[in-house]
Design a protein around this nucleic acid. Structure first.
Lengths: 197, 197
DNA sequence: AGTTAAATCTTTACACTGTTAACATGTCAG
DNA sequence: CTGACATGTTAACAGTGTAAAGATTTAACT
């Protein structure tokens, strides 16, 4: 009897369910509206369950941030395939970066909220470095490894890439916080024009 | 008897004491380590006392962020008085901006943590717009008013100022989070060189 | 197959948080 | 002097993260 599954003791895919729930909370309420217990609630599970998969809150948020960087990577890669010369590809990536940050404010915010994350996590590190590497590569022609970005004093990181990254990241961050409207006619184009690489 | 003051019922300068305590916590433990109760504890006062002065946590943090913007304004103004031509003054301000953010990571972080602040607060608004206005003025020759920055769609904000702001803010933010070392030889100079205004 | 180890989830508990309500104390203007 | 008000206090509440101990399922090994 009782043909209904009626919630088995084991969830089965709790890890992914918690990540999904967290992303849902982020888009609905932002990062300040997130809590471990709320994520557990949405996944239909007790408050202590997430600990088995992520250790603590930091672990879950790091996993979500990692997923965000992979998504950003995909967007940058897609921009790269749009063709055009080097300058066109650089600008396309820059626009994709900005578009991502503006479209997913809370997720983008989390990705850089280093105090709330475990930056030593290998997956996070690789995903975040990989995103910057795409920009670095289209500008300099060579990719950048994780070691180069971790041991920051080491040479190998191109100054032009850091400048471009700073410009794009700053524009995205400031726009995301409502300091100006990124869609204001001519604004983004004008800012892009200063991308002298 | 009891010549000792032995803590009078009224603190006297609780408002400022709470702001000081918060800034102390920020430098010691960062924003994640802050709590209203901890600030009250350091000010030697009960947990409910701050509410009379700031309403809620958001109110206290907004006051601290406002103070931060005033400090930033002073740094930018000081950079402006160092003499030199227009380009020199622009670069001096940019360096002062970066120096401030790197020297006071948690405070700088808070200043832009808009979800944790009350952005409608007039003092905060005026202090933050005032800081940008200094950069805007040295670049374009005219200051920018609060209305112009609030009604973002309105013209009046110079694209060159937004680009410079984005570059400097992005560099500061990324460096602050440990993505690279701002003191790496040649890095900051190279990034500054792209400040083509 | 049967038994044991490991993984996954629950319940319970604890210390901490922000905020409110009700009350106490000091200040000050009329 | 006497309210009215600003500024404190205590007590309470709901919500949080996470740790400990027990329950249940899966998996692995003989």
């Amino acid at each position: 009897m009782s043909a209904e599954p009626s919630k088995p003791y084991h969830h089965g895919e709790l890890r992914q369910a918690l990540i999904n729930a967290t992303e849902q909370i982020l888009t609905e309420r932002g990062l300040e509206g997130f809590s471990m217990r709320e994520a557990a609630r949405r996944a239909g599970v007790s408050a202590a369950a997430p600990a088995h998969h992520f250790g603590d809150t930091r672990g879950l948020l790091t996993a979500v941030a990692t997923a965000g960087f992979l998504e950003l990577q995909a967007a940058l890669r897609e921009a790269n395939t749009q063709g055009g010369d080097r300058t066109a590809r650089i600008q396309a990536q820059a626009r994709a970066y900005i578009r991502f940050g503006v479209a997913h404010p809370a997720r983008f915010d989390l990705m850089w909220r280093c105090e709330a994350l475990n930056r030593a996590d290998p997956a996070y590190l690789s995903a975040s470095v990989g995103a910057f590497s795409l920009l670095h590569e289209v500008i300099t022609g060579v990719a950048v490894s994780a070691e180069q970005l971790c041991d920051v004093a080491k040479p190998g990181i191109d100054v032009r890439a850091v400048a471009a990254w700073s410009l794009v990241h700053g524009f995205t961050t400031l726009a995301r916080q409502g300091n100006f409207d990124p869609e204001m006619p001519g604004l983004m184009d004008g800012v892009m024009a200063t991308l002298t690489v």
